[in-house]
Simulated scan of single mutants.
Amino acid sequence: MATPQFIVDIRARAGAILLFLPGVVTVVFDETGRVLLNRRTDTGRWALISGIPDPGEQPAEAAVREIHEETGIRAVPERILGVFTNEPVIYGNGDRSQYIDIVLQCRAVGGEARVNDEESLEVRWYAPGALPPLSENDGMWIERALREDPAWFAPAAPPASWVGSLETGA
C-alpha cells in the first residue's frame, strides 16, 4: 500500500510510535449487484477497496478517489454502512498504526475495472454468492450492505465514573 506523503512526514518526526489514522473502506456495487474487489499487493489477499483520506479531504471524496486510483472505476457514495476502530497493525519496518474506518456503500457509474496503480495485483467484480476468501470484516460489510442494515458502530459502555450515578439516577 502506498503511504501518503503526510504520513511519511509524520513518521520522519515521530518514528514508529502508534499513529491513530482515519481510513475509508468501500463496498462498491455495479448495476448487476456484483461487488468490486482488489487483490492487494501488500498482502496478496482479496479485499474491499480502501485507503487513507488526505488532510482536509472528506471521507466520501477519499472513497471516490481511492476507488478510481486503484481500479479505474468511477463511483458515487450512497450511504454509510458503519464506523469502527481496527486492531493495531505492525508493519514490517516496525511502524505501528491503528485505523478508524468509515465504511461507505458506493455505486459504480463508469469506468472499466482494471489494475490502475501499484496497490493492486488484480481487480475484479464478484457476485455476492461467489466471493473469494475475505477478511471477516470485509465479509461482514458486504453482508450488511446486501441486507440494507442501518449504519453500525460499536456500542459504548458508560464511563466508570457514571456507574454509581446510573444506579441511583443521580
Rank of each mutant, 00 (worst) to 15 (best):
residue 123 V to E: 01
residue 110 G to L: 10
residue 136 E to P: 00
residue 75 A to H: 03
residue 9 D to P: 03
residue 81 L to P: 00
residue 116 N to P: 06
residue 94 G to H: 05
residue 57 E to T: 03
residue 80 I to D: 06
residue 28 V to D: 06
residue 83 V to R: 12
residue 97 S to I: 01
residue 145 A to I: 14
residue 139 G to H: 12
residue 107 R to M: 12
residue 62 A to S: 14
residue 115 V to L: 04
residue 33 G to F: 11
residue 121 L to H: 05
residue 14 A to T: 07
residue 92 G to Y: 09
residue 29 F to D: 07
residue 28 V to E: 02
residue 167 E to W: 04
residue 155 P to L: 09
residue 165 S to E: 11
residue 71 T to I: 03
residue 82 G to N: 07
residue 64 V to E: 05
residue 5 Q to I: 09
residue 109 V to T: 10
residue 19 L to H: 11
residue 93 N to H: 11
residue 102 I to R: 01
residue 170 A to Y: 07
residue 106 C to T: 09
residue 45 R to I: 07
residue 161 S to H: 06
residue 55 P to D: 07
residue 158 P to I: 10
residue 108 A to F: 10
residue 36 L to N: 02
residue 3 T to Q: 09
residue 118 E to V: 13
residue 142 I to R: 00
residue 50 S to E: 08
residue 70 E to G: 02
residue 86 N to K: 11
residue 55 P to G: 08
residue 31 E to T: 12
residue 105 Q to K: 10
residue 117 D to K: 09
residue 111 G to M: 04
residue 133 P to E: 10
residue 145 A to C: 11
residue 21 L to T: 00
residue 110 G to S: 10
residue 74 R to W: 12
residue 58 Q to A: 14
residue 100 I to F: 03
residue 64 V to C: 01
residue 109 V to A: 03
residue 24 V to P: 00
residue 163 V to S: 05
residue 133 P to F: 09
residue 82 G to W: 08
residue 80 I to Y: 08
residue 113 A to S: 06
residue 52 I to A: 01
residue 42 D to N: 12
residue 85 T to S: 11
residue 151 A to R: 11
residue 33 G to Y: 13
residue 51 G to T: 03
residue 42 D to H: 13
residue 150 P to L: 02
residue 68 H to C: 09
residue 102 I to W: 05
residue 73 I to E: 03
residue 166 L to P: 02
residue 10 I to S: 12
residue 43 T to F: 12
residue 149 D to C: 09
residue 25 V to K: 15
residue 51 G to I: 01
residue 63 A to F: 00
residue 48 L to Y: 08
residue 92 G to I: 08
residue 164 G to I: 02
residue 76 V to E: 13
residue 63 A to Y: 00
residue 34 R to W: 01
residue 148 E to M: 11
residue 17 I to K: 13
residue 76 V to H: 11
residue 118 E to I: 13
residue 106 C to N: 00
residue 34 R to Y: 00
residue 170 A to M: 04
residue 154 A to E: 11
residue 73 I to A: 06
residue 158 P to F: 07
residue 143 E to S: 15
residue 161 S to K: 08
residue 24 V to Q: 00
residue 68 H to Q: 11
residue 10 I to F: 14
residue 41 T to Q: 13
residue 77 P to N: 08
residue 57 E to S: 05
residue 112 E to A: 15
residue 104 L to F: 05
residue 126 Y to S: 03
residue 163 V to H: 13
residue 100 I to M: 14
residue 121 L to M: 10
residue 6 F to A: 04
residue 41 T to V: 09
residue 27 V to Y: 01
residue 128 P to M: 04
residue 133 P to S: 04
residue 102 I to E: 08
residue 149 D to A: 15
residue 72 G to Q: 12
residue 149 D to V: 02
residue 168 T to N: 08
residue 13 R to V: 11
residue 42 D to T: 14
residue 159 P to A: 14
residue 168 T to D: 07
residue 34 R to K: 14
residue 74 R to S: 12
residue 67 I to A: 00
